[in-house]
Design a protein around this nucleic acid. Structure first.
Lengths: 241, 241
DNA sequence: CGGTTACTTGATAAGACTCAACATTAGTGG
DNA sequence: CCACTAATGTTGAGTCTTATCAAGTAACCG
């Protein structure tokens, strides 16, 4: 893990949603922070926490979920390397959800003071980071639409499209496959279904030969057909190019 | 509509989620903009638009919704007076959803350039506006959880709690009632249900004597019980005090 | 290995949807 | 201001998707 890994991750994350000048890139690459290795299922943020840093994912796979007093659980996001899952703590002190590692992961904790200093010095970076938090917002809206309006099969297909497109955007795909080390129970908690139904839905999707989820990996056999099936439009991810 | 109405609306909106100093308040009150009256069902923003201004609601009731190519529609938010529904256009050019008036409404269009200039001059206001956009994000996450995990009755109860609490926060309630001029079909589009089922759900809620929705108004007869029923926790609204 | 976690299957029930009709209300033009 | 029309709200019957419960199998971990 070299010293520039932190800045490189954030730079690559910001580059996929906007233009970064050379000067801005240099400034970002100068960022440092504490690297922390997380064990499977280890929390890095819990409701009530008020961290002095934001997280950048360097390796692994994380999820954000909310727990209600009545015990219901809703996964609100998945995070892959280069994602910055808790930028909102820059302006909202108290965290409301749990951020935890799905598999062993490395994250970097970048101090808010460092980020604020960087944004003060490079206003374009501030705009980009702000923009990033607004893209997250758009993604939440899409998750809302997905879980409110689609059938189980389409929901799953749509989520698979999202994870695959996001993975490709930062080069984390291996041809037609990418990491998605989640259990069926987690898929259920993300999609608003039960584990049993997820199992059956996965089988029915597999039978269409469009997509397969096994051994914690996603195998996309026919992206075009899958995207059409879920009516997936990547616009909400606001990717450049 | 006096000249200060615009700033007053935004000031009151920002004040409920954070501390505004006297100097900041004065700066906000100096904001101007074009006031536009919207007819019932009139759009102010459509997918593909790239406005040079953001909207502040002065009077009426607005909604934001996304339409998918397959024709499905999902309402993603309701906006009451003082709300600022399109602050995200400050950093994301292209709008993805439709913003439209549910009933005749007055909105103010505040130029991005004016907002940027204000935020440049008063960094605290920038933090507050950023924070506001992050609170919106938290609200989207709660809508996701609501529509993914709750039964129809609890969903409706939860939404009613939100609208009532938000209305009270800006003094728009009349005792135990507040404006909510939406049709049952709109409730369906917001909650991920069908119109028919919304009708039956409303009846069943009415029978519990906790809440009633009629003539475009919400009548909360027993907020405590309603909140407990929906396990409503207002924390996600990030209201001060 | 032994125990836990994850996945799979079957049977049944509940919640929500669809379709179709009708009642009521609100909006519009004569 | 009334009559007409469109939009909204209501009801019933039947269906389908998804949840629930219960059990068993496979994979993984210490």
């Amino acid at each position: 893990m070299n010293d520039r890994a932190i800045g490189e991750a954030l730079l690559s994350h910001l580059s996929i949603i906007g233009q970064v000048s050379n000067e801005d890139a240099d400034a970002i690459l100068g960022l440092g922070g504490e690297v922390r290795s997380l064990k499977r299922h280890e929390d890095i943020l819990k409701p009530g926490d008020a961290p002095k840093w934001s997280v950048v994912v360097l390796r692994g796979f994380l999820q954000r979920y909310g727990s209600r007093r009545d015990g219901l659980r809703q996964i609100q996001s998945f995070y892959i390397p280069t994602d910055a899952p808790s930028l909102e703590t820059l302006h909202i002190e108290k965290v409301q959800s749990t951020l935890c590692a799905v598999v062993p992961s490395d994250v970097c904790l970048v101090l808010h003071t460092d980020l604020h200093e960087l944004m003060e010095r490079r206003p374009n970076i501030r705009s980009l980071i702000w923009r990033e938090s607004l893209v997250q917002s758009a993604i939440f809206r899409e998750w809302l639409t997905r879980n409110s309006r689609l059938t189980a099969d389409a929901r799953m297909a749509h989520l698979f499209c999202e994870i695959f497109v996001r993975s490709c955007a930062v080069g984390l795909n291996d041809g037609e496959s990418c990491e998605m080390p989640v259990t069926q129970e987690m898929l259920a908690d993300a999609l608003g279904l039960t584990g049993v139904h997820v199992n059956r839905t996965l089988q029915s999707l597999r039978e269409t030969n469009m997509v397969e989820h096994k051994n914690g990996r996603l195998f996309i056999h026919d992206f075009k057909r899958l995207a059409a099936y879920a009516d997936f439009d990547p616009g909400y991810l606001h990717l450049r190019r």
